[in-house]
Nucleic acid binder design. Structure first.
Lengths: 129, 129
DNA sequence: AAAACGCTTCGGAGATTCTCGAAATGTCGA
DNA sequence: TCGACATTTCGAGAATCTCCGAAGCGTTTT
């Protein structure tokens, strides 16, 4: 029987307790995405998205893969976190923002990266919060 | 297929993302406790404990029962939250503060309420955060 | 080589959270 | 009835979080 500090669990739950981060996780469940793709779906500033991704990675939920000027993030919960995520998905899938995001993501995934990033300079549709 | 807002889920996770609140939940898994009993185990100010309990109740995790001047809180996750809690317990049980709390709670439960509350006036042992 | 591009880091403004002690509320016992 | 008591509410200070735009860093394109 091992004894762990409680902070990692607290940090994980704190990380999960934010709508943008939950939406990112739901998006990545359909496969990896780069920052500008996520940015395009969420309607937040690129720096904000990048910060959320960094925190999700720190919490042990994502892995990153650099490819030229793009950075792709993939859902990859580390050992011992899968059970928590598995029970989370059904709750997440029922929510309105996630349904909407997944639909938007299907379109985004079909579009070449060069085009998406360029497109999202002006756009700022932004689902509130 | 129903569509829910995402905020309730976010609020729940935010509520869970705090060490004192996780420790309270772990305590109550062994049965209801009143504020001064929890206060005695956690070593936080009574008002702080009361506020955490209120938040846990608002999140749909606890129910309260008044008995004279005491208020007993019981673990009672509302429908649709049990699965999340079930997957949380094993993670929580492995942590050092929870193990320590449960041991302290066993002693506290054997002591009459009048005595516990009186005892904890001066005491302020306080596991740091 | 220079410009454009995607992403991250930094600085800061505004909002939220956390904790406590003081004061308020309701209950019990002398 | 009055004082003691358990709990809650309130107010305030400190700490943390969230978001953005500006600036910085590598990579690619021109």
């Amino acid at each position: 029987m091992s004894t762990q500090p409680i902070e990692p669990l607290v940090d994980l739950l704190k990380t999960l307790g934010h709508p943008a981060r939950l939406r990112i996780l739901a998006l990545l469940r359909d496969g990896e995405m780069c920052v500008c793709q996520i940015n395009s779906v969420l309607g937040l500033a690129p720096s904000t998205v990048s910060e959320h991704l960094t925190e999700l990675r720190r919490a042990g939920l994502l892995s990153e893969r650099k490819d030229g000027r793009w950075v792709h993030y993939e859902l990859k919960p580390k050992a011992g976190l899968q059970d928590l995520m598995e029970v989370l998905w059904p709750h997440l899938d029922e929510t309105q923002p996630v349904k909407k995001d997944l639909k938007a993501a299907r379109a985004v995934r079909k579009t070449p990266l060069e085009m998406i990033c360029a497109m999202d300079k002006p756009r700022r549709t932004a689902q509130k919060h």
